[in-house]
Nucleic acid binder design. Structure first.
Lengths: 249, 249
DNA sequence: CTTGTAGATGCATGATTTTGCAGTTTTTAG
DNA sequence: CTAAAAACTGCAAAATCATGCATCTACAAG
């Protein structure tokens, strides 16, 4: 694993959990704590986080414009979500989770689509508020900072009352055995509720998420109806997933 | 294999995996690592990727900001809201309506303020979500798209259950006789609920809103505790308002 | 056909970076 | 205060890198 990857992992984890612990990272990444400490010191000196005794926390002020949302590998994500556009039809009730892949998806939803969309992600709501024909419902609750999504019981309560035709659910990690898994516990339970509330469950993610795992389970593969990656559906990397019965787009 | 082919292969691989490793590429392409390194350096200098120790990763891209929110007369608004910062204290429960004046206010809230803030405005929530010490609660509901706020009964229900210390309420129009008035009916009833739910009601607006009116009433002047404009509190344009008993900052 | 040249490639070498370990210091918690 | 955990420091091994140089290839001019 490259150092740059580690740093990215650490920053992602930091955003999800608001903190990282040196020993946990050393265990998760299979490296000595010394190396993790050096990483944290480096990221600290770049002002990307603040090192504290035992780990690191988020840096206080982000001087960059809050409304500039960086999307990594946007082209790849466009490629993925374009395939999923065929799943959209007029008059559907849709639930969308957060995540940058879903944000790219939101950007590409055709302007003439008439649908009702529920979301609990601020950026996705802002994006969809540009669409003339979409009834947009934001699911309120306590905000998880930096992930820009609402979480908690308020969200679960609202979601569990929705009768949706389809939900689009981001994926932190997916593998054959555990299915979808998430870094954060709170997000994982919201996603569980989304799946319960929807007739059809679609997950979109880049193939590098395949065969990885995170601490908190969301659902197993049998609960997913469709997965979408940038790969050809017949690609051998997807063989095992195809066998599990999930439809691959 | 031509160099151009290799470069294409490397870029494809990079998009697939979000990274490339020098040794892997050397093996896959049956070339020395030196050549791969030269390739990576070349692509790096063309800004097509970023070389790191052991391989290369994707360059960070910034998304086009669909989220650009134009604020007219931002300097004047800064001047207004700066006065209102003195009304903030730790441990307050605050409700904020939408509007660009309130958005400017949100930007200027000190980083060390510990408070709970309710809002139903997407831009304000995005702004505050970066704030380290604020418990932020978004009030969900149906989105009114152009204003980027939620409206309707869901919002009223949540707001009416809040016990807030102070609310900051944008103003479309204000005059002596009718007090605060709004263009939209839906917004007007949400603001009524905010006022009911708060011990103290503050309204911030530029002086050109003075002595204008809109179709839907929100409250009369006696229900406002404080108003804030860019004018000196002793300015004669405010004489009549001062007489009504409202505090002018 | 020969020859010269420019670019590409691989190898050797020394420099640089990364990483884990051992010993010491600092911080935290009781 | 004391003990344990975490952090820092110096060091050495391994991996990676930059550089110079020789070789090879392609191609054009003579």
């Amino acid at each position: 694993m490259l150092k740059a990857e580690r740093h990215k992992y650490i920053m992602t984890k930091l955003i999800e959990d608001q903190k990282v612990v040196t020993t946990d990272l050393a265990l998760a990444l299979d490296l000595s704590e010394d190396t993790i400490r050096r990483d944290l010191n480096e990221l600290d000196s770049k002002k990307l986080l603040e090192k504290v005794y035992g780990g690191a926390v988020q840096v206080k002020e982000k001087s960059a414009n809050v409304f500039d949302i960086a999307i990594t590998a946007e082209e790849q994500k466009k490629q993925i979500v374009t395939k999923a556009l065929s799943l959209l039809h007029d008059d559907q009730v849709i639930i969308m989770s957060g995540g940058s892949t879903n944000l790219v998806f939101a950007k590409l939803i055709p302007a003439d689509l008439k649908a009702t969309i529920y979301t609990y992600s601020l950026p996705i709501a802002m994006q969809l508020s540009q669409h003339p024909n979409i009834d947009l419902i934001f699911i309120g609750g306590k905000m998880q900072k930096n992930a820009m999504v609402t979480i908690g019981m308020d969200v679960i309560q609202v979601v569990s009352k929705i009768k949706a035709d389809i939900c689009f659910i981001g994926a932190s990690s997916i593998n054959i055995k555990q299915g979808l898994t998430e870094v954060g516990y709170e997000i994982s339970i919201v996603k569980k509720a989304m799946i319960e509330a929807s007739d059809r469950v679609v997950s979109m993610f880049a193939s590098n998420k395949l065969n990885t795992k995170m601490p908190h389970g969301v659902c197993d593969l049998t609960q997913l109806d469709t997965i979408v990656t940038e790969l050809d559906p017949e690609d051998e990397k997807l063989d095992e997933y195809r066998k599990s019965g999930v439809f691959i787009l």
